[in-house]
């Protein structure tokens, strides 16, 4: 029997990254997203990507102190999806347009007002996650532990490495491996030759 969640329960569940809440959101909202995207030049993969991005946005919003839901969660979620998809379409056009470097326009002109809806950073997260999952399990854990500022001694103990130096060497190796995977990923080509800050 399917348990029906209220909007409040869903927000609370999402704050705790509850899998059954995510599953409920998926089953309830995916048909609407699919319908919207198939009518606006999207495919099944776009539907999955957009759902993931919208969940990340909703999660980020839900954990902020200022978040107050002023409409139904479904309306809010679908509006996030629609805005993200609009950005995605504009980003596609922008990329085509940027093929001529001499005449490209400022990216800021295309950004929407909502600070939470940064499609590029969401896409980047998605690509990084995809490539992170391609790494061996030990590498993945090592990088995550290292970035959480856990000491090399502790990491060596947790991952059963023989020394702290080996943790550092292995970390350089894993990071380099991940970077190379990202650099060779065709979807990540837009981040190469980046001239930003």
């Amino acid at each position: 029997m399917i348990h029906h969640y209220t909007d409040k329960e869903l927000i609370e569940g999402l704050r705790h990254r509850n899998r059954s809440c995510i599953n409920y959101l998926y089953q309830e909202y995916i048909p609407v997203i699919r319908h919207h995207l198939t009518n606006n030049s999207g495919n099944q993969q776009d539907v999955e990507d957009l759902f993931q991005d919208a969940i990340v946005v909703l999660y980020t919003r839900s954990i902020s102190q200022s978040f107050v839901l002023q409409c139904s969660l479904k309306t809010f979620f679908i509006s996030i999806c629609k805005n993200l998809w609009l950005q995605r379409l504009e980003s596609k056009c922008r990329l085509l347009y940027q093929a001529d470097y001499e005449v490209h326009e400022s990216k800021s002109e295309y950004l929407l007002d909502d600070q939470w809806l940064d499609y590029d950073s969401l896409e980047q997260q998605r690509l990084f996650y995809k490539n992170l999952m391609l790494l061996p399990n030990v590498c993945r854990r090592l990088l995550q532990l290292y970035c959480l500022k856990i000491s090399c001694k502790e990491i060596a103990r947790m991952l059963k490495f023989k020394s702290e130096d080996y943790v550092k060497t292995r970390k350089y190796y894993c990071k380099n491996l991940l970077r190379k995977k990202i650099m060779n990923d065709p979807e990540c080509q837009q981040y190469l030759y980046y001239d930003g800050n």
Binding site: R19, I22, Y26, L132, Y191
Partner: peptide, 24 residues
């Protein structure tokens, strides 16, 4: 990319969330 990766890896909660969305 390395700097962006550091920021991404720092946010363990987002990685966990994305993982759960993927599995769902």
């Amino acid at each position: 990319i390395d700097a962006s990766l550091n920021r991404f890896l720092l946010d363990g909660e987002i990685i966990d969330l994305i993982g759960k969305v993927h599995s769902v």
